[in-house]
């Protein structure tokens, strides 16, 4: 079975303004794809649209994953299909502990129609063991699991929690929205190492890395780099494309694109 994520001619509006103007993109199973682009090019819009945020209105196009058009699914159904979004700005939920939340999320993934949820719930020992292991993987103290979801978290802690969730939920396709933003160099290394070890353990997982800067790609090697500009993919290449962007900035591509267009 082909588990690529296939985006076809995706048009998205926010508050009546078109942001994505026909994206065609395939994220292959087991591969790491990076999307780079300047501010305002539509990177986060793409991430939110894939996860199903109600504010993003799809006016045209399809997104296929595991034989389903995910645009027909609710956000929770997409998650249970194996899609995961690591948020750029994770949301705080007071009074809900990280551990309780993770357990509920894992059980939601394990639930089956018409089966008593207690039968499919993750066994206690297994959950604890898994949580302990994954916390260690991300250099996080066990007390982290008792804190409230993103409440009073530093920028670095929020990003680590996103990766912890990814490690616990074991998605088959992860979209990571500017996971490097707001991280200092040490935190970036920890987060990147975490992502790499998850990827090592689950080589079949596809990753779509959305980033503004090339620095994350020093730690996580993409197989393919796409450049997003003004709501369209304007260029694709290997890892060397990222380095080129780092060196020259985005302007030269913009000029080339406009040049091609004119």
């Amino acid at each position: 079975m082909n588990n690529d994520l296939v985006i076809k001619n995706l048009h998205v509006e926010v508050d009546g303004q078109e942001i994505l103007k026909g994206i065609d993109l395939t994220v292959e199973q087991g591969k790491i794809h990076a999307i780079m682009g300047p501010n305002g090019s539509g990177k986060s819009t793409l991430a939110y649209t894939l996860a199903g945020h109600p504010r993003y209105e799809v006016t045209e196009g399809e997104v296929w994953y595991k034989g389903q058009n995910v645009l027909d699914l609710e956000p929770d159904e997409r998650a249970r299909l194996g899609l995961f979004l690591a948020f750029q700005y994770p949301v705080a939920v007071a009074g809900v502990s990280v551990a309780n939340f993770l357990r509920a999320a894992i059980n939601a993934h394990r639930a089956e129609e018409g089966v008593d949820p207690r039968k499919t719930a993750i066994p206690v020992a297994e959950f604890r063991k898994k949580l302990r292991e994954r916390l260690q993987l991300l250099n996080m103290d066990e007390s982290f699991a008792r804190r409230y979801l993103n409440e009073g978290f530093s920028g670095g802690e929020k990003k680590r929690l996103e990766i912890l969730q990814m490690a616990m939920l074991e998605p088959s396709m992860a979209v990571m929205d500017e996971t490097d933003s707001g991280l200092d160099i040490d935190a970036l290394r920890i987060v990147a190492n975490g992502i790499n070890s998850i990827k090592e353990q689950r080589p079949e997982m596809g990753i779509l890395l959305i980033t503004h800067y090339q620095r994350l790609l020093n730690y996580i090697k993409p197989d393919v780099v796409h450049v997003l500009m003004d709501g369209r993919i304007v260029r694709e290449g290997g890892p060397e494309l990222a380095l080129e962007l780092e060196e020259k900035g985005y302007d030269w591509i913009r000029e080339e694109v406009i040049g091609h267009a004119s």
Binding site: A51, G52, H53, P54, R55, E74, P75, D76, R78, A79, R80, F84, L85, F87, P90, V91, V93, A94, G95, V96, F101, A104, A105, A108, H109, Y148, L149, Q165, L169
Partner: peptide
């Protein structure tokens, strides 16, 4: 909307997400 979406994007149904937020509020 953002709180609900965040929890739902992890696989929780809308009702589950809602009760999680309300229970957290009452914690």
């Amino acid at each position: 909307e953002d709180q609900l979406f965040y929890l739902m994007s992890r696989g929780l149904s809308e009702a589950e997400a809602l009760s999680m937020i309300v229970l957290g509020f009452m914690e």
